[in-house]
């Protein structure tokens, strides 16, 4: 693994910050240089949010700019395509299939785009799309969508040993929530695409 740029996108309140913290902890555990860029403040209030995680030997800019992401980890499908130009040609998209209507859609000023997943599947990207919300609910809390998706991501990074992921979880999840989040992570990691 030389350099790995992961762009985490979603809707404010979905837990993107925790996801990036988790990935940052994992990178530190395997002895790599890592930078994470977060968003706080106003855009957290239900807006479109993006955080960047860059892992490598010597990272300078904490930002992933257009055409630089190896992986887009999307918590919501519209957000996956909103940020698509940040993905490298032939990059990977891991997306939750959940839809959250933006306010202009809620008010009927515009519509939620059709066939996002079909278009993504037809594009020159490697796509993993799954119902992370249901898997999170099955594992015990709807709030663990982020951890389910990280479980899926972990499968695409075989060079990171499995125990490191558990150590990463231990580092960022409070003890009383560790069991449910470990279950959510396993759900994602063992998820078989249908």
């Amino acid at each position: 693994m030389v350099n790995l740029n992961i762009l985490i996108v979603g809707v404010g309140g979905q837990g993107t910050l925790l996801a990036s913290k988790f990935l940052g902890a994992v990178a530190a555990l395997i002895g790599k240089d890592v930078k994470v860029s977060e968003v706080h403040g106003m855009s957290q209030r239900g807006g479109s949010v993006v955080t960047c995680v860059k892992i490598g030997d010597n990272i300078h800019s904490p930002l992933i700019d257009e055409g630089q992401a190896d992986i887009i980890l999307a918590f919501e499908q519209l957000e996956a395509v909103r940020w698509i130009k940040y993905l490298k040609k032939g990059g990977t998209v891991i997306t939750n299939i959940q839809k959250i209507n933006p306010m202009p859609v809620v008010f009927g000023q515009t519509t939620y785009p059709d066939k996002i997943l079909d278009i993504l599947a037809d594009s020159d990207v490697t796509l993993h799309a799954l119902d992370a919300f249901s898997l999170a609910v099955e594992s015990g809390t709807s709030k663990a969508v982020n951890i389910v998706l990280l479980g899926v991501l972990s499968r695409t990074l075989p060079e990171i040993p499995e125990n490191i992921w558990q150590d990463g979880l231990n580092a960022v999840i409070p003890a009383k929530l560790l069991d449910v989040n470990t279950r959510a992570f396993e759900k994602g990691r063992n998820y078989i695409e249908g």
Binding site: G12, E66, I84, L87, K89, D122, S123
Partner: peptide, 21 residues
């Protein structure tokens, strides 16, 4: 110019401004 992944069809993503919770 950066080289980015492209979608097989254009999608106009509606804006998602911050909202009151």
């Amino acid at each position: 110019k950066p080289e980015s992944a492209e979608l097989s069809q254009d999608i106009q993503a509606p804006a998602r401004p911050p909202v009151m919770c």
